[in-house]
């Protein structure tokens, strides 16, 4: 299940400055595990010690917040775009 993941700038240091990563995964958790395999350390920025998604980072599948869907278990289809949007406060 190949999906496209959009990586926010602060996390691009893990991905070798790549803003977009193609990876395999049938749901959000599987995608995060796939990301961690390729880019060690990135998952800890997105999940807490218990493996729950951090509540200051939003995940969108295409344009939909996964909290409207099935959270971390949200199923993905080939070609889906997963966006990671962290809270920021710059002004």
């Amino acid at each position: 299940m190949a999906v496209k993941v959009l990586i926010p700038t602060p996390l691009q240091k893990f991905t070798g400055d790549q803003a977009t990563i193609e990876c395999e995964g049938g749901n959000i958790i599987e995608v995060l595990n796939a990301l961690e395999q390729s880019f060690p350390g990135i998952k800890a920025r997105l999940c807490d010690e218990q493996g729950n998604l951090r509540r200051f980072v939003n995940f969108y599948v295409n344009s939909e917040d996964i909290r409207f869907l099935n959270g971390a278990e949200t199923a993905l289809e080939s070609g889906d775009e997963v966006s990671i949007v962290p809270a920021v406060a710059g002004g």
């Binding site: 700038t9 602060p10 809270a87 920021v88 710059g90 002004g91």
Partner: peptide
């Protein structure tokens, strides 16, 4: 609500 960081904003 407007916020930014680096080259990203929402």
């Amino acid at each position: 609500e407007a916020a930014m960081n680096g080259m990203e904003a929402y």
